Simulated assay, not measured.
Amino acid sequence: MSSRVLGQIFDCIIIGGGPAGYTAAIYLARAEIKHILFTGFQPGGQLISTKKIENYPGFKDGISGYNLMESFKAQSEKFGTQVKYNSVVKIKINRKPKVMNMHETVLDNSLKIKTKAIIIATGANTRYLNIENEKKLIGKGLYTCANCDGYFFKEKKVAVIGGGDKAAEESIYLSNICKKVYIIIRDNKMKASKILQKQVVNINNVEIFYNHKVRKLIGKQKLQAIYCKNRTNNRTYLFHVEAIFLAIGQIPNTLICKPNIKLDKDGYIITKSTITNIPGIFAAGDVQDSSYRQAITSAASGCISAIEVEKYLRTEVE
């Protein structure tokens, strides 16, 4: 850790180096608010594993997730953001009533840093199947966002894994692009809302398979097929597809929030705008967004959180 950080008290600490964190940093830097950003264990967030992004404005030929996040980082540093590759492992909340709450973050190297405000932008991790060959095929036929990667499989056969709203929405989206969409559901029914279920069952090129569990992904350099087992009759099936889209949920990275920062039943931070239940602590990006989960919406909430921090600091001074 640089001597520039040791012993300092910051106006704001940003936890997380994805679109939300870096956008917040850009706005804080331009407002001349003293801040620092800790990237955590995955600098750049989930986008790092995305080979090509074509739905982020400003890049007519698309851009890789890695290059996009490097651009975010470079822009924030240009305006003076300190970026450190540490993880925050604990937040110590100060509830003194007569002075501005001076919170404290504890890093993975045990260093403690005080701050007036915190933006939590730790994102969420995709819930994977945890089966053979899965991690090897990420970005090579296995994807987590149909809006991001479905375009590359025009007139191809694909599968969506899951039975909730996201699975239904992604299947509807893919049905307009792909030749065939298989929905593989582990349970005996869909959990998606009734209106989405009605839409899905009426699409000609969508076929639903209930009580099917994905057991193995076939392919070395790219996905070739998925091997499934019917849970009711134990028969096995091979689906020849060029891509699968996981829609079995996400796991928000909110371990450091417990027990003081309020979470919903799925573990996402509860916010009003980006304001949490703790004065001086804000949340942005996928860690508080269970609905949209897009790079652009994360960046937007990062902007909002920085503006809220500026208002909070100004109000406390007044």
Rank of each mutant, 00 (worst) to 15 (best):
V158T: 12
P57D: 09
I172T: 01
A25E: 12
I48M: 12
M1R: 01
P57A: 06
F41E: 14
Q288P: 00
R231L: 15
L217Q: 12
A25T: 05
S49R: 08
N202W: 02
T236N: 11
Y151R: 00
C178N: 06
N133W: 03
G17V: 12
I307Y: 10
I269G: 04
T274G: 08
E134V: 11
E169A: 07
F38H: 02
N67F: 13
I195M: 02
I278V: 15
G80P: 10
N260S: 15
Q46V: 03
D11Y: 11
N253E: 10
N211F: 14
T39F: 09
V287G: 08
A295V: 13
R30T: 15
K191N: 15
K52I: 04
N86H: 05
R314I: 14
G163F: 13
I13N: 05
N204P: 02
Y227P: 04
E170Q: 10
I161W: 02
D165Y: 06
A247V: 14
L313G: 10
V206G: 12
S87M: 00
Y292F: 15
S64H: 11
Q199H: 12
N125K: 07
I48N: 03
N202Q: 02
K116M: 07
D264H: 07
L313C: 07
S64I: 15
E242F: 04
L47Q: 11
L68P: 06
K84C: 06
Q250D: 09
K265L: 11
K229G: 01
T297Q: 03
V158E: 08
E54A: 14
N253F: 08
A121W: 02
I203D: 07
G18I: 13
L28C: 10
L68K: 04
V160F: 04
A306G: 12
V317G: 01
T315R: 11
F41K: 12
V317T: 07
E169V: 06
